[in-house]
Amino acid sequence: MKITKKTILYIVIAELFTFILLPSLLLGVHGIFNKLPAPAVPKIFVNKVEIPKNIRVYRHTYGVTEVVPFEDYVKGVVAGEMPSNFETEALKAQAVAARTYSLSKIIRSGDGGNPPAHPDAPLCDDTHCQVYRSVYDLTALKGDNWMQKSWPKICKAVDSTKGQLMYYDGQLAEQALFHSSSGGRTENSEDVFASAVPYLRSVDSPYEEGATHQEETKYFSTKDFIYLINLKYPDRKLSAPISKVEIVSKSDGGRVEEIKVNNSSYQGRELRDALGLSSANFKISLSNGTITITSTGFGHGVGMSQYGANGMAQRGSNYKEILAHYYTGVKIY
């Protein structure tokens, strides 16, 4: 091959481009990208709580404390607290709520000791904490057929959410309260209990078809009414005759806040406790010596309505959507 001056020129130009111009161009482009803002990296703000393998549960029925695998305990709570024929997404929502609530009780017991009602365990098996049923209990209560058909459904729902908890503002949502049905709207926590909890806000709960204790009516003679009220609240000394019964105020959720009987004032939940009403969401009237009370809903009305959760699931909501509706602003991790 004959090397000409033209060929030598091409070789020189190629070497200049390869070893001088190209690196300069690449450095320039790199510099441009260095000046661009870095892509946002999501911050992990959750104070993640460690879930124990086993927990201690006081069994009121047997008078003993048992060591139970934590996730088995959650399964027993879902079986004890929610009908097994509910939609799977509702069962999942119940599992996350129950897991979150029970773990908060365990954490609090580490700070200040176990509750006086069961000093050897942070949790018990009745409504003082959450209703828990072991496999043995469920077999005795519901039979082999239920265990073959419904128990696997509950186990699958709990297993699919294993380890998942609700958090609010990066902290465990310790008050993951729930109730059977609200009667159409849940309550702000401060309208029922002592303090305002930011994720326990009053929200609509419209899908409670099939809920128990709807439009439940009870009748009391004025004599029995006075006896039951004074038995529970003797400080107010209600006396006959009863001439006036008046609801003074209601909460955002529609429950009776204050009611006046003659000149004595009571909270709606006080009447609920004294008279054994299913809910403080009630109407009351006095006629011919008989007091008639019609209540709707079952339970305190704070947090998740179980029948409302099932109604949402029937309409296509998944368990995270259900929880986000009833617990304002929570995240699930």
Results as ranks from 00 to 15, higher is better:
H179R: 02
P198T: 04
S182M: 04
S239E: 15
G170K: 08
A196S: 09
S205T: 06
D224G: 12
A173E: 04
P206F: 15
S181N: 01
K156N: 14
S205H: 03
L165V: 02
S189R: 01
E187I: 12
R255K: 13
S202T: 08
K149E: 09
V256L: 00
Q148M: 11
N230C: 08
D224M: 05
I226E: 07
I247S: 07
F225T: 08
C155A: 11
G210W: 08
V192A: 02
S180H: 05
D169G: 09
K237V: 14
K237M: 13
K232H: 09
S181A: 12
Y227V: 11
G253P: 09
Q214W: 01
T186F: 04
L200P: 00
K156D: 14
E208Y: 02
R185N: 10
R185M: 14
T212Q: 07
N188D: 15
D235Y: 12
H213P: 00
P206D: 12
T222A: 04
L200G: 02
G254W: 02
S243W: 05
S205C: 05
G183L: 04
V203C: 11
I242W: 13
W146R: 12
E174Q: 11
K153H: 11
L231M: 12
Y233V: 01
A240W: 10
A157P: 14
K223C: 12
S205M: 04
E209W: 10
R201M: 06
K244R: 14
E174L: 03
D204C: 12
I229E: 02
L165R: 00
I154F: 08
D159P: 13
S189V: 05
P152G: 09
E257T: 09
S160K: 14
Y167T: 03
M166D: 06
A194H: 08
K250D: 10
G170R: 09
P206A: 14
L165N: 01
S189M: 02
S180V: 13
F193G: 01
E258L: 10
G183H: 00
N230R: 03
G170A: 07
Q148I: 11
V245Y: 13
Q148F: 06
S160G: 15
K153D: 08
E209H: 11
H213I: 00
G170L: 06
A194Y: 10
C155E: 15
L238I: 04
V245H: 13
S202F: 07
S189G: 00
